[in-house]
Design a protein around this nucleic acid. Sequence first.
DNA 1: ATAGCTTTTGTGGAAATCCACAAAAGCTCG
DNA 2: CGAGCTTTTGTGGATTTCCACAAAAGCTAT
Lengths: 407, 407
Amino acid sequence: MNPFATHFDSLEEFADHVSELLQCPITIEDANHRLIAYSGHEHYTDPARTATIIHRRVPERVINSLWREGVIPKLLQSEQPVRVAQISEIGLGNRIAISIWKNKEALGFIWAIEMDEPWTEQQFDVLKQAAKAAKNLLLQAQIRKHKKEERIQEFFWKLLTGHFSSPHDIVEQCNELNVHVYPFFAVGIFQFQQHIQTQVERQIDYLLKTTQQLAVPLYTIDHQRLIVVVAPSSNVYGEAHIERFFRSFMAQMKERFRVDIVMGAFGNVYECYTNIAKSYEEAQTVLKMKRAFPHQLADVQSYQHLGMYQFFDLLFEKKRHGDFHNAALNKLKQYDAQHHTNLVETIETYLDYDSNVNETAKALNIHPNTLAYRLKRISEIGHIDLSNMSEKVKLYVDMKLDKYRAT
Amino acid sequence: MNPFATHFDSLEEFADHVSELLQCPITIEDANHRLIAYSGHEHYTDPARTATIIHRRVPERVINSLWREGVIPKLLQSEQPVRVAQISEIGLGNRIAISIWKNKEALGFIWAIEMDEPWTEQQFDVLKQAAKAAKNLLLQAQIRKHKKEERIQEFFWKLLTGHFSSPHDIVEQCNELNVHVYPFFAVGIFQFQQHIQTQVERQIDYLLKTTQQLAVPLYTIDHQRLIVVVAPSSNVYGEAHIERFFRSFMAQMKERFRVDIVMGAFGNVYECYTNIAKSYEEAQTVLKMKRAFPHQLADVQSYQHLGMYQFFDLLFEKKRHGDFHNAALNKLKQYDAQHHTNLVETIETYLDYDSNVNETAKALNIHPNTLAYRLKRISEIGHIDLSNMSEKVKLYVDMKLDKYRAT
DNA sequence: ATAGCTTTTGTGGAAATCCACAAAAGCTCG
DNA sequence: CGAGCTTTTGTGGATTTCCACAAAAGCTAT
């Protein structure tokens, strides 16, 4: 006899029904730990549940903790209920959880709080039946969402390609599609090691939806790239927040799902949504430069911190035109070729290490005095004043542009 | 009774005639100390005269020496003969010189070597008559030249504005106009304090024609600017030679003629004459940047040494477009405004002085530790890593671009 | 092979930099 | 006004840089 053979008007009604059967509070989440429904009966409720209900999603530290403890992996592996012992640091009481499945995809979870008495076998059976019954209810909500997703995708690509010129149009479309408009945003890109498979898509969706470091109102997947709009809560430290989010996103993709992300990059933070295309361009520039200068830009993610590489595309265009030939650099190259020396490498490393003699010498495996001697020769041969910032900049840029050409 | 009442077929014949009357070697030069004619009789000839005849012009060190001794100023002031005592360092024997005049313009000079006996009054009279007689002969040569000059001017402007696309056409035209084609050249510009008057034009012509530091195959005058094509003898040190020439030209215009030249600038050295327009552009860029950054570029003349300012026009264009907004710089500016501090000035000066703490502190009139403290604050407030060359470059460039906009 | 060059490495001392710590002065805001 | 902050200046010591000089090693061309 199935206690769920009746029709439920809403998920709330369903949650209340389960709660009544099991005599404990019930919470239902989707696969991304968003609150779907919860029972309203007066029972004891642990702080984690309270927070979940208030914010309409499971707090991130709770999710992280559950991953660390291996709870969520276990839920994603089997359809069996999992008992979770109290974790007081995050305000989680004793819980029982079970995943809701459709074919091989986990659609969500049902959480129960284990009250004073340990559960009986019968209670576990009820929970398993509840999970099965929840499937159809959840599915309906999903379908409604899927259709909308497609329209959002199209809208997002229009934004990225600069299709809209009026901020008003954008906001209107956002409202229509139920996309929240945030006061500040930036566009970011993650470059994956491989073409992104459906399974990875789900994992991405999961991480983006569960993060609470910042909002991700829009995202899309394109071959090996994940493109996101990120909205930091404040403008002052917005960049730092995005930076942190990017690092943790890449770390989590690797740790939890063993998916390698080669690099991440994001453009400037803007206020006006017409700048999405610009921020996207900037993010692309960062990726391009990181590819050309993997060493120097190893831990640069933002366009802001691209430094001088920001204007490399522009300069390169000009250089290809035959402008900017650098007599000093040419002379050094020529000298190197004729005398089998390393003057160009020396000066480049020296500038890479911000004119720091010791570090440069260490990096080049030479005596500091050797470096000093070479620098003297460099300034003689190239007629360069190495204590003139402007000349140093020109030389440095020209050398890096040379490298850029080689890519 | 005038001993010059006969007709002379050539200036040579005239020189020989004077030489015979005075019993000494005679040399006739134009106003720019180019050799016009000389007597061929067998007399003693001092080394300075020999060199003049061989090179078809008076050696530059001789000219310089005569200026220094006040000889040439005296010749340009009066129509009287001037006695010049021997100057053995430059191989000049005892000489008598007189200028040749037409209206108020000196067309050239007659030089005689004073032999063993001091000259009699009668000999001086003969020389004076010779100077008068030389006038018409010289004038004829001048007129022929003037007409050609006009055609050359037109040709030169075509070159500067990039009118020719084929090097072959240029060389052909040069040959036709009797303009020597040199293997290397650059275009230079001198910016004068004032509109260039006819008298100054003559002085410019004089200096350009007499210099032997390098060749000046073409030049023209445009309002307050003198535009020249300079051809250094070698390519290796070409730049250095041009540099030296520019400094000495400006010094001499000032010393000899009291004419102020505000600044000089020249473009890259090229081989192909189709690049005249490019070198001209580059020289113009140097002038423009020197005007915008008079302090930093005070002793820069060449495009080569413009350093990073080479690409300022390009970057500025982009910046005006709204790109390249620098969050770090903005934060510093904002902090300065709110707290009445000088962080921006500090970092700019620091970078101007190539990150040299002592010099910067001196320039800012602060204690070195104060500077250190400010730098720490700057990196905190602007989230900048001041030991990262690329970030420093970006910040520096952005600050200078700000200044550039102000001009 | 050897003379004459460049290049590398070493030594030592003066000067500059970096850093931690602290006193004093200046500014802001309740 | 005065507490609490930022900013400036000072002191002292470890470290680094800068320079001059010299020895040694490497290269090149006669």
